[in-house]
Simulated assay, not measured.
Amino acid sequence: MSVFVLVHGAGSGAWVWYKVKPLLEQHSHTVIAPDLPGHGKDKTPLADVTLAAYVERVCQILNEQPEPVVLGGHSMGGGIITQAAEYCPDRIRTLVYLAGYLPENGQTMLGISQEDTETLLLANAVFSEDQLAVSFRPEALKQVGYGDCSDEDMALVQALLIPQAAAPMTIPISTTPERFGQVPRVYIECLQDYTIGPSTQKRLYTALPCKKVISMDTSHNPYLSAPQTLAEHLLALA
């Protein structure tokens, strides 16, 4: 049996995995879906939410496990698991990017978005007065990331989505071939994605080749719209 550690994306929390987690657990796998600092039930102040804090939380969890894990990251979580793999590569069996940022050494997640010609993310971003946080126009949420999600899903998202600290998106990822580069990678692309456009996802996994690329004909958030199919893909990697 495998240990899955699933890292959520921007503005989200452990709650995003609530449909997928039991589908993996019913096959006797262990699933850990943490709230990153400042997300969900974690009350870290926004000013203290950094990329380093995110990565430290993930590495702490990895080091607590009895065996190397399948480490999944959705969206922003992709950048986080990339940096975590540089710091603790021996604690990871496989990296799984779910429509996630897969930055090369020196890239930032914001920089990747700025080069994305298909994304609707930045056009609908709203920064706080102090520039510490970014949220998204509520009326654009469905179009940007949840196009195939039900009204029930959208009610949950609108109730639980929070402003995202801007700082983690602007910090360059630092990796080496000797550490991050030695951890096997799988990419799950979402073909109806307007958060990280399909062309950008392809560019990312082409620049840093993955041992397997899986395609899902969904929006950016298939853990809500296609949980059974997503779970089946993850189970195949166990």
Rank of each mutant, 00 (worst) to 15 (best):
A159L: 10
D130P: 03
A125M: 06
N105W: 04
M154C: 07
C149A: 10
P163D: 05
G145L: 02
P168L: 12
V134N: 02
A99S: 12
A167I: 05
S113W: 11
L95E: 01
T108W: 11
L110N: 05
V96L: 06
V96F: 06
V144K: 00
Q158N: 15
R137V: 10
A159V: 03
L121Q: 06
A165Y: 02
L132M: 14
Y146K: 01
Q143S: 15
L132W: 08
L161W: 13
D153V: 02
Q158W: 10
L120E: 01
P168C: 02
G145I: 00
P138V: 05
T94L: 13
N105L: 06
A167K: 10
E152M: 07
L95T: 03
A125Y: 07
D130G: 03
E129L: 13
L95G: 01
D130A: 06
I112L: 07
D153F: 00
M109P: 03
L110E: 05
L120R: 00
P168A: 08
V144F: 04
E115I: 13
L156Q: 13
L110P: 10
T119M: 11
Y146T: 01
A167W: 04
G100V: 05
P168D: 07
D153G: 00
L156K: 09
N105G: 01
T94V: 15
M154D: 09
T108R: 04
L160H: 07
V157M: 12
G145R: 04
S128M: 13
Y146S: 06
Y97F: 12
E139Y: 09
D116R: 01
E118Q: 15
T94R: 09
L156M: 13
L160A: 11
Q107G: 02
Q107S: 10
A140F: 01
E118K: 11
T108N: 08
L122R: 07
L98H: 01
D151L: 11
A165M: 01
Q143R: 15
G145C: 00
A155L: 10
A167T: 12
A140Q: 14
V157L: 08
L120P: 02
A159E: 10
Y146I: 02
A166W: 06
A159Y: 04
M154N: 12
S135I: 11
F127T: 09
Q114M: 13
Q131K: 15
G111T: 00
S128H: 07
L132V: 07
E118T: 05
A167V: 07
A99E: 08
G106R: 11
L160F: 12
E139R: 08
V96G: 02
A125E: 09
D116K: 02
V157E: 09
V126G: 05
Q143A: 15
P163L: 00
L110K: 14
T108F: 05
L160Y: 08
Q164R: 10
L160N: 12
R93G: 12
L110F: 13
A159P: 05
L110A: 12
V134Q: 03
L121T: 10
E104D: 13
F127R: 14
G145N: 00
Y146H: 11
L156W: 05
V126N: 04
E129C: 04
D148N: 09
V96A: 10
M109D: 09
E139Q: 12
E115R: 15
A99P: 06
Y101G: 03
Q107I: 07
